[in-house]
Design a protein around this nucleic acid. Structure first.
Lengths: 238, 238
DNA sequence: TCAGGCGTGTGATTTTGCTCACATTTATTC
DNA sequence: GAATAAATGTGAGCAAAATCACACGCCTGA
């Protein structure tokens, strides 16, 4: 742990006690899922939620006029599909596995019973939701209040918090992201992203080395969003 | 209950059993709060959450460069501040009472204990979060994917679901909203809102009678968002 | 009753971001 | 290593929305 990336965010599963982790795992089934597979589609009825043991899952919304919008990129220890607990509502997003993954699948009904019995696990779950809510709303207010540039900076900060690793020249975002991917995360076009990226490169705020983004001056980004002092936990992409 | 406003959304508190309602109320303190008072500010440490018995509370984010963004307008039976449960994180929004209100204030610590003991109340809380999450994310994807017009239509639909009452010419939104208020809900300017409002009036989609908006053709708005068939519960403003 | 405040309405100008079109570079595949 | 595909880079034109500037109506309180 260095000064650049002070600490990784603790994810839901890590926050549970050993004992609770075991209880939870006993109620699920481990499954292997290949990249490209879809865990559930928008509009379907919710049946399961998933814990990621290994791999990455992307949550997105897609519209009829085939616009796409990526909401989250979930990783190890994250929960996917929690927003369907325990409603009869149909799902509001699509979950797609983007790198081969090992997941634990839980049945909704099982979980409800488990939570009713183990109030303390339910409380951990509430914490998960609470953090998520804050994080999501913070993200969107960035996206809306500071234009596309703001949205872009916001997403960079979020990626650096969720996927950043220390690097001699700053923070390296340790996943491949095309311009188009980034565009889907902020609701813009790849051209606009490309121009913004190049502006930042020109000013030496970031650089790109074989497809990976390195952020040299994250404070520049934070300042633009008036977010110098905001807590790390809420600025995440997962 | 008519065909225009098929049913009011059931809010968190109403979904609890009588027994649970009583248990919950026993753990809180009833307070009266005047319009204009602030329950908590962005950046503070979270101490309480609130149940609205009567009145309205607005949740917003405010930035240094004094941009404002209204996230929710909560009403009777809604919970305010749940996103602070049970983290040590500082609050990410400001809660302001906008009409004189009667609230029940809960202490975080109390609630955590209560939930641990009564898993089933915790489960109800998880439902609240789950619905909220879906609703919020649906809203924001509208705001980002369909431009300012889309954002505006989205907000109108949400207000009609949360505050709409039947009216001979359509759905009346039963709260006063200035152009500026609406602008803060969608992250735009009052001028833009004004122009959009007038466009809708011109086409007889809506009209405004002494400050209250009446929606005549809500389907027009829905169609624009490709949202004809989407469930009522997630399109709310609270 | 009239002054001041607040909300609304509307034009002109500028900025931002999207669309389209195409060139170039970087990966893949056979 | 040539052929193809995928991703990046960039200009020009256009559309959407923000900004600025100001006029008007309506309520409210001295």
């Amino acid at each position: 742990m260095s000064s650049v990336v002070p600490h990784k965010n603790k994810r839901f599963f890590e926050l549970l006690s050993e004992e609770h982790q075991e209880i939870l795992l006993l109620h699920g089934t481990e499954i292997l899922v290949r990249s490209g597979q879809v865990l559930f589609y928008e509009g379907e009825d919710a049946k399961h939620i998933f814990l990621i043991r290994e791999g990455q899952v992307r949550l997105s919304k897609m519209t009829i006029d085939n616009k796409k919008f990526f909401l989250h990129l979930k990783q190890k220890h994250d929960i996917v599909g929690e927003f369907s607990l325990f409603n009869e509502m149909s799902l509001s997003m699509t979950a797609e596995v983007v790198t081969d993954s090992r997941l634990v699948r839980f049945d909704q009904k099982n979980l409800e019973a488990l939570f009713t019995q183990h109030g303390d696990i339910a409380v951990s779950f509430i914490k998960l939701f609470a953090k998520n809510t804050q994080s999501t709303q913070a993200k969107f207010s960035d996206l809306l209040l500071y234009g596309k540039t703001g949205a872009f900076y916001s997403i960079l900060i979020r990626f650096s918090n969720s996927y950043g690793v220390n690097h001699k020249d700053g923070i390296l975002i340790d996943i491949k992201l095309t311009n188009q991917d980034l565009a889907y995360f902020i609701g813009t076009t790849r051209e606009t992203v490309n121009r913004m990226l190049n502006d930042l490169k020109k000013d030496n705020i970031i650089s790109v080395r074989n497809g990976y983004i390195i952020i040299h001056q994250i404070d520049f980004l934070r300042k633009h969003l008036h977010c110098e002092k905001c807590p790390l936990e809420i600025c995440t992409i997962s």
